[in-house]
Amino acid sequence: MFRMANPARFMRVSAAVLPWCAGATALLLAGALILALFVAPPDYQQGEAVRIMYVHVPAAYMASLVYVVVAVASAVALIWRHPLADIAAQEAAPLGAGFTLICLVSGSLWGEPMWGTWWVWDARLTSVLVLFFLYLGYIALIHAFDDPTRGAKAGAVLALVGVVNLPIIKFSVDWWSTLHQPESIFRLGGPTIATSMLWPLGVMALGFTLFFVTLLLVRMRSRLLAAKIRALRLAA
């Protein structure tokens, strides 16, 4: 972690890693789409509509995962004043907000044919909506200061406070019996989902994760380059 605290070294390493990440993302997402749309069987109850799951579930998983990334990077930035951790947290947050929006919209599109409604005030839906607003609040806060380092620090504190929402999202379907189905993949006693559906889902989730890593690297690199250009302009 501390070897990467040097922006020059980060630029070198990320430049080497980036093409591999991008290539793997393209391959995995293309493969996962074929698996999800053509290979995976239709559900015996939900029919073809179940294919929405292959977008919805990975997006939901990314929405939480990215928040963990933002929170951990914020903690690292606050504790060790790691220069790249702040940038990582700030550049990851809009991506997380995007995944959360995809999760909400795809869930809504899936809910209409299955539950007969676009939206219910169910515990999990509400807590994901809260997560979306946490992302928006964080993004608004880091841009609200004239001094960007103040914004970064205030945002870091807020990101850590918002972590309380993550266990609420995770366990909402177990604590409250609601319309949203309970956990079917990461549970004690193994997944309750059919293997023929689990495989495409796993590939898709891996693709989403690598997609996030790729975009995060691109965003962090362009942020560092922009800072460098500004410094050069000021020096000239």
């Binding site: 509400t126 809260v130 607003f133 946490l134 928006l136 609040g137 608004a140 806060l141 609200a144 200061f145 004239d146 103040r150 914004g151 205030a154 504190v157 807020l158 406070v161 918002g162 309380v164 929402n165």
Partner: peptide
């Protein structure tokens, strides 16, 4: 927490409600 975090921010009051209301739920 919200008041401390938005201290010195532009439009701090509006921002404060955006940050705090989700946590009030």
């Amino acid at each position: 927490i919200g008041a401390a975090v938005t201290l010195g921010a532009r439009r701090g009051g509006v921002l404060l409600s955006l940050l705090v209301l989700p946590l009030y739920i």
